[in-house]
Amino acid sequence: MTFTKTTEQDSNYNHLEKMTINELLTHINNEDKTVPLAVEKAMPQIENLIEQIVIKLKAGGRLFYIGAGTSGRLGILDASECPPTFGVSHDLVIGLIAGGDTAIRKAVEFAEDSTNKGWEDLNTYNISEKDVVIGIAASGTTPYVIAALEHCNSKKIITGCITCNKNSPLSQVSKYPIEVIVGPEFVTGSSRLKAGTAQKLVLNMISTSAMIKLNKVKGNKMVDMQLSNNKLFDRGIRMLVKELNINYDEAQSLLEMHKNVRTVIQNYSHGN
């Protein structure tokens, strides 16, 4: 199959510098509207990968995201939000980026071109067949990511990917590829735009669905969230008011005592 980087093709718009701010915003917004529809077309692929993730996580495995640049940062963002949102260990979902933590804020030149560093980065976590690794690369051609997944395949570790090009080298090495084809960017080649939005939407789906299937949500509430600030503590109190049909002060005192929404619901429901 032929491979064409649609993410690198010329923008459908020209002379951007001559546009008014309103015109720029209108065109960017119109392009953004196409992203959820592109994600919808990839939902069977997304579902297949999530099914594998749930199996592995329930058996004590971990989920790894690995990427470079914007893709790597999006993986780290999603991983970092799982502990406060769902009360899971920081070791359950792990994001890795080419160039290490420095690259989260500042581009590290040529880090994404290494064909051995990705596997080395994964290996520092003693990765094994119990785990799942998702390579994230809008282009689908990032050597750091592709080589890491090839190593994983040789070790019988389940691999997936999130890319925005059809039939990319990354898709070819992924056991469970996700391809969200968003087409040319508003600014030619700027894959932090539609491609980045698509990757964020898919990551939201993956982590949220997996955590729900791990019973980290009750009803529609984040009952295992970490009460790490006043806003979240207040949210927890309001959950208890609604769930247990008690007043705010009583809910507050119970939450201060138990420090966890789920624990209060379980204890209170059992008359403790």
Results as ranks from 00 to 15, higher is better:
T2K: 09
E8W: 01
E17F: 09
E23H: 04
T26D: 09
I28L: 12
L37E: 13
A38Q: 03
V39E: 02
K41I: 11
M43Y: 05
M43I: 15
P44R: 05
P44N: 05
I50V: 12
I50P: 07
K56I: 04
A59T: 03
R62S: 10
S71K: 01
L77F: 12
D78L: 06
I94F: 03
I97P: 08
G100T: 07
R105Q: 15
V108W: 03
E109R: 10
F110N: 15
S114C: 02
T115S: 14
K117A: 13
W119K: 02
D121N: 10
D121Q: 11
T124Y: 14
G135S: 09
T141K: 15
T142R: 01
P143C: 15
A148W: 04
H151P: 01
C152T: 05
I162D: 13
C164D: 15
C164P: 12
N167A: 13
S168Q: 02
Y176W: 06
P184K: 04
R192C: 05
L193H: 06
L193A: 12
K194E: 10
A198E: 02
K200Y: 11
S207V: 09
I212S: 09
V217W: 03
G219R: 03
G219P: 02
N230T: 06
L232I: 13
L232F: 11
G236W: 05
R238T: 03
M239P: 00
L240D: 06
Q252H: 14
S253H: 13
L254P: 10
L254H: 09
E256V: 00
V264F: 11
S269K: 06
